[in-house]
Simulated assay, not measured.
Amino acid sequence: MAPEVFVDILREALQMVILLVSAIILPSLFVGLIVSVFQAATSINEQTINFLPRLIVTLLALSWGGHWLTNQLMEFFFEMVHRIPEVVG
């Protein structure tokens, strides 16, 4: 039960979190940037205009990538279950 095992598990978990969150957040970030540039170009200062497109894109990213996200989480979970003997003994 070496400390390196726990560091590897933590590193893999953080990589998984970054991968899953970026798959949801990055499309919303790009749409928010496009809407903000449009608002700056047209001098529209309404804050609610930026919310709805970002919400829709986030929901679409979740619905289109939900199967892939679930598959990634399941693979990670199965890998962690297979590593239990390595951690325990």
Rank of each mutant, 00 (worst) to 15 (best):
L73T: 07
Q15R: 11
V57T: 08
M80T: 11
I84C: 09
L62Q: 11
V57Q: 01
L29I: 08
Q72N: 10
Q15G: 05
E4Y: 11
V57E: 00
V17Y: 03
W68N: 06
S43D: 14
V21T: 08
L69C: 10
G66D: 04
P27A: 04
S36P: 03
L29Y: 02
E46D: 15
P53T: 06
N50H: 13
A61Q: 04
L52T: 08
L19V: 08
L33W: 08
R54Q: 15
G66R: 03
T48E: 02
V88C: 00
A2Q: 15
V87N: 13
A40Q: 08
G66T: 03
W68Q: 07
A13R: 07
A41N: 13
I34F: 09
W68C: 00
F78T: 07
V5M: 06
E86H: 00
A23V: 02
I18P: 05
L10P: 02
M80V: 07
L10G: 09
M80I: 08
W68V: 10
R83M: 08
V81H: 02
A41M: 14
G65C: 07
V87G: 11
F78W: 00
M74Q: 15
F51P: 10
R11T: 13
P53D: 01
S63Y: 05
T70Y: 11
L19K: 11
Q72K: 11
R11H: 09
L69R: 03
S28C: 08
L55R: 08
L26F: 03
T70L: 10
E86K: 06
I84G: 07
Q72D: 08
S22N: 09
S43T: 12
Q47G: 13
M74N: 15
M1K: 12
F38C: 07
L55D: 04
V7W: 14
L62D: 04
Q72R: 09
N71H: 09
L69M: 14
V31M: 02
Q39W: 10
G65N: 07
P85V: 13
D8E: 09
G66W: 02
S63W: 11
L14V: 13
I9E: 15
F78E: 12
R54I: 15
L10K: 05
L60A: 01
M16D: 02
I56S: 00
I24G: 01
F77L: 15
S63I: 14
H82V: 15
L10R: 02
V31H: 02
A61G: 09
V17H: 03
L20M: 06
M16H: 06
I49W: 06
A61I: 09
V35Q: 13
I25Q: 04
M80Y: 03
V7A: 13
L69V: 15
F30Q: 01
V87H: 11
Q15K: 10
I56H: 00
P27V: 04
L19P: 04
Q47C: 09
G32E: 04
E75L: 00
E46S: 14
M16N: 06
V57A: 05
V88M: 04
I56E: 01
E4M: 12
F77D: 13
N71W: 02
Q72F: 00
F30T: 04
L60H: 01
L69N: 09
L73C: 11
N50I: 14
R11M: 10
E75I: 07
L52E: 10
L69A: 14
E12F: 07
L62K: 03
A61E: 09
G32A: 06
M1S: 14
M1H: 14
G32M: 03
M16W: 00
L26R: 05
